[in-house]
């Protein structure tokens, strides 16, 4: 196994995938705790569909998918929040509305232009081969910004996650923090789409948080445990993918799901009353 790991890291694209993936997994797991507890879990799924739509546009326009997707997915994250807060459209319905529209637009664009080529399939289901050096640097920079902001604003993030009413009464600009959470999710989803796949990236946001909530009692421990699980599952998934030639995104997701099921059993055995 050690030889296999050493061999794996002899390939520069694997090193790039490993570094990029660790940063994305870390950010997804910590932001995911708040999204899950605020019942915004489906937002990640919705935004990943939007990501696919913008990818299709990028393929048609022959542009870099990352730089086109990033602003568009962030705008959609803003729209999702605004639609669900201000109008009569419910949050889940708003996500369905925007995500399916973006997906349909993407499919339509591809069908009348290039068709479902390999590049498009890679974005749908994930691939580590296409990770450019520039993409890695952009990912490291943006994820570092997210991690620093998260640590600095942790008390405020806890407050808006636990009790928005109290946070608002205390003078906190709750809508700006909600927006910041949505924008950070958009960034993580766009960055992680290449490796994990548009259809699987939301798993990185939701499952580690759900797993951690099975065994942890405090918010801080949930965040830290979720982070540890996410990093472990990513590393294990990448290794399995390399060793058995399985799709990276699907490998990481399945290890996450397996670990979640193990925690469900642990929770049942301990008779805990978490979710």
């Amino acid at each position: 196994m050690i030889d296999s790991i050493i061999q794996m890291f002899s390939y520069s694209f694997m090193v790039r995938a490993f570094i990029t993936g660790l940063f994305i997994s870390a950010c997804a797991s910590i932001i995911g705790v708040s999204l899950v507890l605020k019942h915004y879990s489906m937002m990640g799924d919705g935004l990943s569909h939007v990501g696919f739509g913008t990818l299709a546009l990028a393929v048609v326009l022959n542009q870099s998918p990352l730089y086109l997707s990033l602003p568009v997915v962030m705008i959609c994250a803003f729209l999702l929040l605004s639609l669900s807060k201000r109008s009569k459209v419910q949050a889940d319905a708003a996500i369905a509305l925007i995500s399916t529209s973006a997906l349909a637009l993407g499919v339509m664009l591809l069908s009348v232009t290039t068709g479902m080529n390999t590049d498009v399939c890679n974005y749908l289901f994930g691939s580590i081969l296409g990770m450019k050096v520039s993409d890695m640097y952009v990912t490291i920079f943006l994820c570092s910004v997210i991690i620093v902001l998260y640590i600095l604003f942790y008390p405020k993030i806890f407050a808006i996650t636990f009790d928005e009413t109290f946070a608002k009464a205390s003078g906190l600009k709750v809508k700006y923090y909600n927006l910041a959470l949505a924008l950070m999710s958009a960034v993580i989803i766009t960055l992680g789409m290449r490796m994990m796949g548009a259809l699987l990236i939301s798993n990185l946001i939701v499952i580690p948080a759900l797993t951690a909530m099975r065994v942890c009692r405090s918010f801080k421990n949930v965040v830290l445990y979720s982070l540890a699980i996410s990093l472990f599952c990513f590393a294990a998934g990448l290794y399995v993918s390399y060793e058995f030639s399985t799709p990276t995104g699907a490998s990481i997701v399945l290890i996450n799901v397996a670990l979640f099921l193990v925690h469900v059993v642990i929770e049942k055995m301990r008779g805990s009353n978490a979710i």
Binding site: L37, L152, P155, F162, S170, M213, C216, S218
Partner: peptide, 26 residues
């Protein structure tokens, strides 16, 4: 109406300290 009913992973201490949320940066 408080967060009495739905599960939330937080200790009593974390909830009390969150009273500082307006001006508290780590």
């Amino acid at each position: 109406q408080n967060n009495d009913g739905s599960y939330f992973p937080a200790t009593a201490k974390e909830v009390i300290i969150s009273g500082l949320c307006r001006h508290h940066l780590l």
